[in-house]
């Protein structure tokens, strides 16, 4: 998995490429802790190039959604591929996360 971080106005966009699984989830967790530590409160996780996610990846997203919301911020998701959307549906995450078709849509919300 590869992560790229981009600051866009008030938003921090974290783009995931590859597999977000049990072995790579800690890397995303560390990166999100870092951007939150640097003061980020509005985070978009761009999933355009994310090929796979397991419950370990979902756990990291949930932890940081709670953390950012608790701090008055937000964590939004964008560009989830159809092939993995079902995992979000089956996990019930579509009702707790705000999911957008693009990073721009997320930032405009």
């Amino acid at each position: 998995m590869e992560l790229s971080i981009e600051k866009r106005g008030d938003f921090t966009v974290v783009s995931i490429t590859g597999r977000l699984d049990t072995t790579t989830a800690p890397q995303l967790n560390n990166e999100l802790e870092k951007v939150e530590g640097d003061g980020a409160r509005s985070v978009v996780i761009d999933c355009e190039n994310m090929d796979y996610i397991s419950s370990s990846g979902l756990r990291v997203l949930l932890v940081h959604l709670k953390k950012l919301k608790g701090a008055g911020g937000k964590l939004l998701l964008s560009n989830i591929k159809d092939s993995i959307k079902e995992i979000f549906v089956v996990s019930g995450f579509t009702s707790i996360f705000s999911i957008y078709d693009s990073v721009d849509d997320a930032m405009a919300s």
């Binding site: 419950s55 756990r59 709670k66 089956v90 996990s91 019930g92 009702s95 707790i96």
Partner: peptide, 17 residues
């Protein structure tokens, strides 16, 4: 799966999948 964000726990998702 119906729990609010605050109450939502991640446990049990693997077997659920």
């Amino acid at each position: 799966l119906e729990a609010s964000i605050e109450d939502r726990q991640i446990g049990g998702l693997g077997i659920h999948f």
